[in-house]
Design a protein around this nucleic acid. Structure first.
Length: 293
DNA sequence: GATGCGTGGGA
DNA sequence: TTCCCAAGCAT
């Protein structure tokens, strides 16, 4: 390879990945760009283990963007199951529709075309361009940010949002060789997912432990702003989830009495139902019943 | 830049 | 049990 700017982190992490990478369907040599794209949307804030079965079902049922685009959006919401954040299902459907309409049904290759799609932000655009098409992009997800914060920044956790300095570091670290750059990105992500985890780093298994600034400093405790705990019990999110679960589990329109039974607080229930309608995750069938779109 | 958005598994 | 959080995005 023609890596003109090798960094001491490169070889150990690339070698570690070669040895320890998980075999995942969207990493198979024959995996389509669509398979990669579906996986990336599903993996946004959702663990790999829960994505695996749903991803397999989606790819079997909808092998191409056109297959998904041909279905009503409610089919995508239902097939999303319990992955969480069901608006992602709508966005994936909308992205499939846009791909059919503007890209001849083929997942686009460039960052600019990708990030224009619904549900595709900076991370996902860079990930699809890199992992599906082998392009060279800085891929900054929570794993990469944590690994870099520790190895080069000497701190336990990155800040709440990506800083210019952080992006500059990641850019400087990205191998110049194009195919190696894509492998590097997935390798650092994998290291963060399997070894350099948020819960507790396993430095004994880390290929770059002896190069890690945070470890060299004696693992100083995180001293940034408190990471706000996600409240859950009694929130609108929980209420929306309950209401949508009732609709997902029924193929027929659901009378509002069944929604009433799913959430006791009427004011909150009505507010959440209204927001689900606003989000197009639910439609009103008639005066007293609702369904998936 | 801060918020809101689901879910279920592990420590 | 309770808490934390897992490959973010849109507003």
């Amino acid at each position: 390879m023609s890596d003109l700017a090798p960094h001491p982190l490169h070889e150990p992490i690339l070698a570690w990945y070669d040895e320890h990478a998980r075999e995942l369907p969207w990493r198979e040599p024959g995996a389509s760009a669509w398979s990669v794209m579906v996986s990336e949307l599903m993996l946004q804030q959702t663990p790999v283990a829960r994505v695996l079965p749903v991803h397999a079902q989606w790819l079997e049922r909808w092998p191409t963007p056109a297959d998904l685009a041909a279905e009503p959006t409610g089919a995508a919401v239902r097939a999303w199951g319990r992955l969480g954040y069901p608006r992602r299902a709508l966005r994936l459907h909308a992205a499939a529709t846009a791909i059919v309409e503007h890209h001849d049904g083929v997942v686009p290759e460039t960052y600019v075309d990708l990030i224009a799609l619904p549900g595709v932000g900076d991370y996902t655009a860079a990930a699809i361009a890199s992992f599906a098409y082998g392009r060279r992009h800085v891929v900054l997800d929570t794993n990469v940010r944590r690994v870099l914060a520790r190895t080069t920044g000497g701190i336990e956790f990155p800040g709440t949002s990506v800083t210019k300095a952080e992006r500059a570091t990641a850019t400087a670290l990205l191998p110049l060789d194009v195919p190696t750059a894509a492998t590097w990105s997935v390798a650092v992500m994998e290291l963060g997912a399997l070894v350099c985890t948020a819960a507790g780093p396993r430095c004994g298994d880390c290929p770059v432990a002896d190069l890690c600034a945070w470890r060299a400093a004696g693992h100083p405790a995180y001293d940034g702003p408190p990471r706000k705990a996600q409240t859950w019990a009694g929130t609108d999110r929980q209420c929306r989830g309950r209401l949508l679960a009732v609709l997902r589990d029924s193929h027929a329109a659901v009378p509002s009495s069944r929604l009433d039974a799913a959430w006791a607080d009427e004011g909150q229930r009505l507010r959440c139902l209204a927001s689900l309608l606003e989000d197009r995750l639910v439609v009103r069938v008639d005066a007293g019943s609702y369904a998936l779109p």
